[in-house]
């Protein structure tokens, strides 16, 4: 555990070999008007690692991952993703980078005018520019089978339950085989059983596709199942870092409050 107690000090990430670190964030700050959402965010995400970001709602957890994909631009700091500085990228470079990053939205964000099959074909034909229909069908069926929803291939999103939508959203993200996965509260709005299934699916998919992941959540069960490492965010900064077991023993009130709910 890197920090504990009432002080909000967190150590700078230890320098790693360039090839091992897929995301390097240093001193990231972002404000909306007068409200400083991110103040000083520092972290390294290593290849193959699952990093969970815990924090209260409205603390800027999602803003961090939106900065990673270039949806938002940090006001200060350096954000390097797969060796490239996101702030210095042009439109085309950003597009190329986004092809290597999967982003699972809280709602699943399925295209509601398209069937599940068309949703999954969309990134293959528009992003990877695949034209061979047999190859496309094979990939769609393979990834849908992976999330256990092959039967729903011709259904519309409106015919799916919340958990199924999340699964399809995950399948659509994974179909392009991204190197990095960003999950924005993947279990929000789901019942405990489905939440657990989604968390296990995230872990399974991470192992299958060898992705590095950042999982934004305040679901402790999801954090316990998926996290290699957990960082806790408060007031625009990361205040503690460690494994689930390490943070369980933290004497920081804020960190304890998350774990107390589950014990």
């Amino acid at each position: 555990m890197k920090a504990s107690g009432e002080n909000k000090e967190i150590k700078e990430p230890a320098s790693s070999k360039k090839t091992e670190v897929v995301i390097h964030a240093k001193g990231i700050a972002k404000a909306f008007g007068d409200k400083e959402v991110l103040k000083n965010i520092n972290f390294d995400l290593k290849r193959g690692e699952n990093m969970v970001v815990l924090g209260k709602s409205g603390m800027g957890k999602s803003v961090t991952i939106q900065c990673i994909v270039g949806m938002l631009k940090p006001d200060a700091g350096t954000l390097t993703v797969l060796g490239e500085n996101v702030a210095e990228m042009g439109d085309e470079e950003l597009k190329q980078l986004r092809m290597k990053i999967g982003f699972l939205f809280q709602s699943g964000a399925l295209y509601d005018s398209m069937t599940v099959r068309e949703n999954l074909e969309f990134p293959l034909t528009r992003v990877l520019k695949l034209t061979d229909q047999q190859d496309i069908d094979k990939r769609v069926e393979e990834v849908l089978d992976g999330v256990g929803l092959l039967d729903a291939i011709d259904k519309l999103p409106s015919d799916l339950s919340g958990g199924m939508r999340k699964r399809v959203g995950l399948a659509r993200t994974l179909i392009v085989k991204p190197e990095i996965m960003l999950y924005d509260e993947p279990t929000t709005g789901l019942d405990p059983i489905t939440s657990r299934e989604i968390s296990e699916l995230i872990l399974h998919m991470q192992q299958k596709y060898k992705t590095s992941s950042i999982i934004i959540t305040h679901d402790m069960e999801c954090a316990r199942i998926t996290a290699d490492r957990i960082v806790v965010m408060d007031d625009g900064e990361y205040i503690a870092e460690g494994s689930y077991k390490e943070l369980q023993k933290s004497d920081n009130k804020m960190v304890r409050s998350f774990f107390n709910e589950t014990t």
């Binding site: 949806m71 986004r98 092809m99 939205f105 809280q106 295209y111 509601d112 990134p123 392009v176």
Partner: peptide
């Protein structure tokens, strides 16, 4: 209404971050 609802439900954002146009 259609594009507005796609914006609200993050469908447009999803297209953008996937690298589609």
């Amino acid at each position: 209404a259609e594009l507005g609802s796609m914006k609200v439900t993050e469908q447009i954002d999803a297209m953008e971050v996937s690298g589609a146009n």
